[in-house]
């Protein structure tokens, strides 16, 4: 039973981190209409900055120092990610959809390539993040894990609520107007540059926050965690979720659940040959399923017809 609780709590943490990451992409793509393939770069910045600050922790340092470094790492991570986002603001205004996607992809891949080639950042192996949080081990494992799960779920909920509130605010409506029809919006006095600044600040910031949390909770960061496929998957969740905050959370949860389920042979229901096949072909099955879903409902699973226009 404890094993089950352990499993659930650990996955809750990672699920929450994924949700926060996805919330950032909802701001970037769902609200601002930026066709982004490089958001994993923001998460990487957040993770590596956090890891870097965490490494400043001397062995056996006081809990107060640990807490201070924790806060500092989050600030640095989010700040760094936001800086990266601001870097992309200018290009985003000038580049059309497909080209913008390529530019963001190039941005993220350059980052990853730089990290891979820098020994100080651990290169391909990655960095071990010094633990600033109490280790969840021994008898205290479940309660501590539970606290982490609670904290991360709370943060995820906060992120989702913030994005939702943004979407409904006057600012959010202006963002969506610019996304729907840029010329008409600009002719009505809405400025693209300001919109992009704000969107990248919040979007990249959320991605960076997810990166920080990931670094601290998983204890290890490597370039492989921030690959193009992971980033594309999150964009997929946002599209499937109809570009809304709540829809995205549902999509994330469902796919996460499916992924785990297939990995565990439908949670132990399918055994033998069929179960083996399921595990082996999990990624292919998921990819095929998601393609089919997208082809069926390209605007999100709950929006049957064309409510929104394309960025």
């Amino acid at each position: 039973m404890a094993l089950l609780a352990d499993y659930i709590l650990t996955h809750l943490v990672y699920l929450s981190i994924l949700v926060i990451f996805a919330a950032g992409v909802v701001v970037l793509y769902g609200l601002a209409g930026v066709f982004t393939l490089g958001h994993q770069g923001f998460m990487a910045i957040g993770a590596y900055f956090a890891a870097g600050i965490a490494c400043l922790m001397p062995a056996g340092g006081s809990p107060i120092l640990a807490a201070a470094l924790l806060v500092a790492s989050v600030i640095a991570g989010v700040g760094g990610a936001v800086a990266g986002g601001l870097l992309l603001t200018g290009p985003s205004v000038r580049l059309r959809g497909d080209y913008m996607a390529l530019a963001t992809l190039a941005f993220a891949e350059i980052l990853v390539a730089l990290i891979r080639n820098t020994e100080a950042l651990g290169g391909m192996r990655g960095l071990d993040v010094a633990s600033l949080l109490p280790r969840a081990s021994g008898s205290a494992r479940l309660p501590i894990l539970g606290t982490y799960a609670l904290a991360s779920v709370a943060m995820a909920a906060g992120a989702v609520l913030a994005v939702q509130r943004l979407g409904r605010s006057r600012l959010g409506i202006a963002l969506r107007a610019l996304r729907d029809d840029e010329l008409a919006a600009r002719s009505m006095g809405l400025e693209n540059r300001r919109a992009r600044l704000i969107s990248f600040t919040m979007g990249a910031g959320l991605c960076g926050l997810a990166g920080c949390l990931y670094a601290h909770f998983s204890g290890h960061v490597s370039p492989r965690d921030f690959g193009f496929v992971q980033g594309a998957m999150v964009l997929l969740y946002v599209v499937l979720g109809g570009s809304t905050a709540v829809g995205t959370v549902c999509a994330v949860a469902v796919v996460y659940f499916l992924d785990e389920g297939l990995k565990l042979r439908c949670f132990g229901l399918l055994t033998g040959g069929l179960g083996d096949a399921l595990v082996n072909w999990k990624d292919a099955i998921l990819a095929g399923l998601l393609i089919a879903l997208l082809a069926w409902r390209p605007y999100g699973l709950l929006t049957a017809n064309r409510l929104r226009s394309e960025p």
Partner: peptide, 18 residues
Amino acid sequence: SRTATFLVAVGASILLQQ
């Protein structure tokens, strides 16, 4: 949809690799 098409392309790429 442009984006959905792109995602389908990514999915197809992954599927073929798998």
